[in-house]
Design a protein around this nucleic acid. Structure first.
Lengths: 200, 200
DNA sequence: CGACCAAACGGACCACGGTCCGGTTCTTAT
DNA sequence: ATAAGAACCGGACCGTGGTCCGTTTGGTCG
């Protein structure tokens, strides 16, 4: 019964074997490079496996599916973005007023979503980000709305503010209808103003 | 040079041959039946072709791709919905006030989007409806907002109202977070109120 | 150090979406 | 009626996502 390794069993969630970790890294690097060189369509599971020097099965064990691989790629920039929100410079990070932070949030989301539009689309979930990523952003918006004194169903209002910034909608407006990005952003500011300044 | 058939070239957009029309119908029927029986995953191009008694190539010539086939299936209910908006009974159709019509629009969109969620997802465009369908709905909302005396960038405000009703967002809220549909609808009403009643 | 086993590996294999081209069928004009 | 030609049809074929299972590797314990 003695020995510290019993504690492991409690909270150790399957630490990854060294070769597994190495392969994961190699695969991510290869995939990112393929995206940069050939675009997102060039990212074939076989190609990624070959470029990383592993078998195809390994790719699927690590990332579950092609969508999973794409999501993992997205995860990098998403993590950076979360860090910028939590501890980066204002107005996106803390240190500015809630309204300024909300505006910075909108602009930042608009830009990064458009930047990674194709990756997001291929990452599945019908063009939305992963649950974790969505939750973080939703929580942030909810807190900002709360600080702004907005009353009502905050989770739903946060969703209402984030929905027009989702990839499918932006794709429609910018890539298909050809709207100017600044105009879309101005429209979002208007929306935010109406949501925030409302008596009820 | 003489002869009336030159007029054809101007405005005749390739009338469909009879067998082609028959096959299209058979394919749509077969596809719909497969959806009903096996769910959307059971709709394999081979299966549709076989069920309709035609070759696989025919399916692709008629509908371009699997997404195209799904879009064609959606098109049926979409057309019915458009008819209900244009000439159906109030409050969705004409005859009610703009606010009532807007509320009916939201509820109707919410319900039908959730009803056809999987079809919409498989119909591509990253979970949004086709351009034509979107345009119609956007125009409708724009007109209603205009009648309500809303000022601002109406196309963008219409998008802002429709975005939370898109399939990916509703999927997230209802199917994943487990929110109640009525609550989502109440949240949308709140959003609409804030958008409509806003001085600027 | 050696044995043991869970975990990871690899690539053959399968299903499905999409393409292609030689043969067939509808339409139209004479 | 019939010939010409465009449109259409079918199914063999290909690439890619995803699965499976026999084999190898890396950590651990005696």
């Amino acid at each position: 019964m003695s020995g510290p390794h019993f504690l492991h069993l409690v909270d150790e969630p399957h630490r990854e074997r060294r070769d597994a970790a190495r392969n994961r890294e190699a695969l991510l690097r290869a995939a990112q490079q393929l995206v940069d060189v050939c675009g997102v369509d060039g990212v074939t599971m076989d190609a990624v496996a070959t470029a990383a020097g592993v078998g195809k099965g390994t790719v699927f064990r690590r990332f579950e599916s092609r969508e999973g691989l794409m999501a993992a790629l997205l995860n990098h920039s998403e993590t950076e973005w979360q860090a910028a929100v939590m501890s980066g410079p204002p107005p996106l990070g803390p240190g500015a007023g809630p309204w300024e932070r909300l505006m910075a949030f909108g602009r930042s989301r608009l830009d990064t979503t458009l930047l990674h539009a194709d990756l997001i689309r291929e990452a599945g979930r019908a063009g939305t980000r992963s649950y974790a990523a969505y939750s973080f952003a939703a929580m942030h918006v909810r807190l900002l709305l709360s600080e702004l004194g907005v009353t009502g169903d905050l989770p739903l209002l946060a969703t209402a503010l984030m929905a027009p910034l989702e990839a499918p909608v932006l794709d429609q407006q910018v890539r298909i209808e050809g709207l100017d990005v600044d105009r879309v952003y101005a429209g979002w500011i208007d929306l935010a103003r109406r949501v925030v300044r409302s008596p009820s």
